[in-house]
């Protein structure tokens, strides 16, 4: 699949973003972590959010995940205006989040972690069904996990990341958000996670990938949104942009300069549904 091939699809007027955020701001006491953030995510698209440490990436993720609520701004999901007050609300909408710190329970086994908060079974837990579905899911992701009945604490970093990503897919989300999924991983494990991301895109999911690593971003992302000091500082289509341009946007060398906007933002004014 070439990226050029997807471009006409995205510019087609029928194509609506699955997630669209407008003017999102969030402060923590004296720190204004996010100011007027804008972002669209289309189905079957991988959007990378990049930015320096403290740029507000994780804060944005947590707002979408229902961990924090935004101070102001609007979130549209499937064209509808929504609020995301709790993690459960985020999940019900169809947003699945893999947090930077994974948020796994080390004392529980893989199955329990995968189904945590939405266990199968009426009354008592249906362990067999959950275990079977865990295997099916992990196989689909070509995950290399020897046993689903061992505590996640005994898994390697890449395996834990896989469990966290697999967990996000339970409940058929429309969007998967990955916060720095490769930050703590080695070369091979990083490649595995990037393969996973591509598999998610092939399933038609919208993927938001937060990353520090430009190589990862250029490998899998269709579009790059740059945050700098809590503000939008660029929105590029990956094929149209060079490594240096992204770095310039991240470090602020293009502050106040004309940032190159992505050509594919046609529905920007549309979603008043």
């Amino acid at each position: 699949m070439t990226l050029e091939a997807t471009a006409p699809e995205q510019t087609a007027p029928a194509r609506e973003p699955v997630l669209s955020i407008k003017q999102i701001s969030k402060g923590f006491g004296a720190v204004q972590a996010l100011t007027d953030i804008e972002m669209d995510v289309y189905p079957g698209e991988v959007v990378a959010i990049v930015g320096d440490n403290g740029a507000g990436k994780s804060t944005l993720v947590k707002i979408l995940a229902g961990v924090h609520t935004a101070d102001s701004g609007q979130i549209f999901f499937d064209g509808r205006r929504v609020t995301i007050p709790t993690p459960a609300a985020s999940r019900e909408l169809g947003i699945a989040t893999v947090f930077q710190d994974l948020a796994l329970c080390d004392n529980l086994d893989v199955v329990s972690n995968l189904f945590l908060g939405r266990e199968l079974g009426s009354g008592t837990l249906d362990e067999e069904q959950m275990e079977q579905q865990s295997w099916t899911l992990l196989r689909q992701l070509s995950a290399k996990i020897p046993s689903v009945r061992i505590a996640v604490a005994s898994l390697s970093g890449g395996q834990r990341q896989t469990v966290a990503i697999a967990r996000s897919l339970i409940g058929d989300p429309k969007i998967v958000i990955l916060d720095e999924p490769t930050a703590a991983l080695g070369v091979a494990q990083t490649a595995e996670v990037l393969n996973l991301v591509e598999r998610l895109r092939e399933r038609g999911l919208g993927v938001v990938l937060i990353s520090h690593n430009m190589a990862d971003v250029q490998a899998v992302a269709d579009r790059v949104v740059v945050l700098r000091l809590g503000r939008n500082n660029g929105n590029f289509r990956v094929p149209d942009v060079s490594y240096e341009e992204i770095i310039a946007a991240i470090t602020g060398a293009t502050d106040n300069a004309v940032t190159r906007r992505a050509t594919a933002r046609p529905t920007q004014e549309v979603p008043e549904a």
Partner: peptide, 17 residues
């Protein structure tokens, strides 16, 4: 299951809904 999850990690349990 929730009791064990909260005992293992309150934050993880909270984010799991």
């Amino acid at each position: 299951r929730a009791v064990f999850a909260v005992g293992g990690s309150v934050e993880a349990a909270r984010r799991a809904g």
